[in-house]
Design a binder for these strands. Sequence first.
RNA 1: GAAUCAGUAGCUCAGCAGGUAGAGCACAUCCCUUUUAAGGAUGGGGUCCCGGGUUCGAGCCCCGGCUGGUUCACCA
Length: 581
Amino acid sequence: MRNIFTLHKMSNIELSEQEIQRRQSLTELRNMGIDPYPAAEYVVTAYSTDIRNEFKDDDPQRDVTIAGRIMSRRIMGKASFIELQDSKGRIQVYISRDGICPEDNADMYNVVFKKLLDIGDFIGIKGYVFRTQMGEISVHASELTVLSKSLRPLPIVKYKDGVAYDAFDDPELRARQRYVDLVVNDGVKGTFLKRATILRTLRSILDEAGYTEVETPTLQAIAGGASARPFITHFNALDIDMYMRIATELYLKRLIVGGFEGVYEIGKNFRNEGMDRNHNPEFTCMELYVQYKDYNWMMSFTEQMLEKICIAVNGTSESKIGDNVISFKAPYRRLPILDAIKEKTGYDLNGKNEDEIRQICKELKMEIDDTMGKGKLIDEIFGEFCEGTFIQPTFITDYPVEMSPLTKMHRSKPGLTERFELMVNGKELANAYSELNDPIDQYNRFVDQMKLADKGDDEAMIIDHDFMRALEYGMPPTSGIGIGIDRLAMFMIGQPTIQEVLLFPQMKPEKKAQVVSPDDFIQIGVPAEWAEVVIKAGYNSVESLRNCKPSQVQQQLSGYRKKNKLDIPSLSLEDVEKWFA
RNA sequence: GAAUCAGUAGCUCAGCAGGUAGAGCACAUCCCUUUUAAGGAUGGGGUCCCGGGUUCGAGCCCCGGCUGGUUCACCA
């Protein structure tokens, strides 16, 4: 019987049996003169899915060199099949003793392949493509190269007819160990390839339109351009607090002032708020500003852009999210917010004042408070009764001025602004304006925001004096839009949660493992061979050990030694008492 | 923030009416040269999330905590 304490030194006590076994294999590979982590380039000439797609039974024999992870093994004596997973997919490899070994030495098959390699290891295979009796296109191996040894067993997910068995599906583990998720779960990598397609398509549309991609500060002295709580950090050199940006808006408008025809930025915003299936504290936003345009133009531009992106991702202008099929085919319905409210609640808010609207809110049995102004109340009604009902892409337009401090007043509807939000699947996807470029109006809006703030609205905006200065130099008529890229990805790919479209969603820090080390016990006089045992027996600090009686400790450790048949010197009570000195 | 469910082997999960923990896959040893969720035989592997409590005895019951899922609330 193997004894892990004597065989594997002290450091292995926390490893599982399988991990220890893999480390042993590592050593044995080295002893055989095989480097488990070779440095040299391994030149591959083909990929799994291409090999299958290109194979024709009548073609002359095709030689290939492929590389990837071993994902399963079926060993039948002197012949085996493995599934090799490369960056594009999986392919079966046929490995036989006589195929990969010289006549006088079968070690490569019998020892290296069968004993020392495991699922998860990277190997390279040279061989030729053929079809097995069962009809599966495979690679017949003539040479096997160890490329990288895996020391941790992967979760084993098996697939048959597209059904996953023993899926690795704990949401927490999947997100925390995305690298494992990507390796073993079908379709996860595809999600992120699609996300990349979305970004690539978006960029190419904007670039072709002649707009310039720019980068503006993430670290800002004033977090402006949106209503949200920021993350605060400290800049030591200047000894001032700074904010992680909550939006790119105000900087991009400065660039329009500076004379760009159109600028866009795709980047992270940070908001110090909750996280759930629709929110992550850092999220990706695309903001675009174009001079001389208005929000009507922006609606047309947006619907055409989304249609193109959807086709690029899905091959069609439709996308499935749960039970909903969403058509991104332009054009989309355009509906003023007050009409939407009238449509969904029956109340016509046109021309109503704040008190009248407050009364309607009460009739609708909504929870409201006195800090809410007219704009906020309308926003609440819309959020409560309308927002979730717009499944197909719908532009909701002409928001009240109170909730749109950066938006130009409507050209013909008093009290309203030239703003739209694009609703998809009952959620906001984009937000756009005819940008406010009247500096005096803008200043007054900021002042109104301050009043709201004084009233207790902690979402109200803070005035940015440098932005005001820029506006005073003059900004051309401009339309701008912000699109949440993570939500866009959810809609386009058909994922129900933001975590599924983020490679590394924010999570609570992992619980720290016990930090006690054997040295801590050795220092108080515990013999080295006993130190690990003391930890294993449940003492996770010197203090916890000293809180027990020496006789109790001695009895427990001796019991543990006996039970586990440990081949180490026994302990006398005197020995143990010395630890308490 | 609230309600609710969950945390058991590397992975997916059983375990109930409190009595020293089970399966499949994975792993180890052996058999098998075209298999495929390969198969056959044998075997090893657990701080039953953590800490208290009740009890002769707790994976299971009670209290507290941690972590996560779901729903709701909040949230540009």
